[in-house]
Amino acid sequence: MPKLKTLEDLKRLREEAQQDIKVRLETGTKITVGMGTCGIAAGARETMHAILKELKKFEIEAHVTTVGCIGMCVKEPLVDIEQAGKPRITYGNVTPDMVPTLIEEHLIKGNVVQECVVGRLPTQG
């Protein structure tokens, strides 16, 4: 296991995280990256890494999760962005170099990057 000091960090972090967790779960942004064989071969892991990097850079607190293949393999890497009260947008062929634009436009400015959209689900609830 990691060093004791690192685990101490984790305990401290738990206390910090518990305070803001409820707010985020209700209003948060959820980003989903396809991680089937097709996604992995198309570079989805690197795309996810780029997403985590951008989120950290702009201190955007979004939940990032990975899922298996959804059958649109030719459009991998697929990235899905879901924000409370907004339609769920699926972007296709998202290479790591496209990630900064996507994060800036979609998450910071609130504009959907139309030319990369491969799917759209209306607002739920």
Binding site: L10, R14, E16, A17, L52
Partner: peptide, 23 residues
């Protein structure tokens, strides 16, 4: 250690990334 805080929490995520990199 985390209790009800999920592994996907942004702060936990960063801890995991740096712990793995160091390890």
């Amino acid at each position: 250690v985390l209790g009800d805080v999920p592994l996907s929490h942004p702060k936990v995520r960063q801890w995991l990334e740096s712990t793995l990199a160091e390890g």
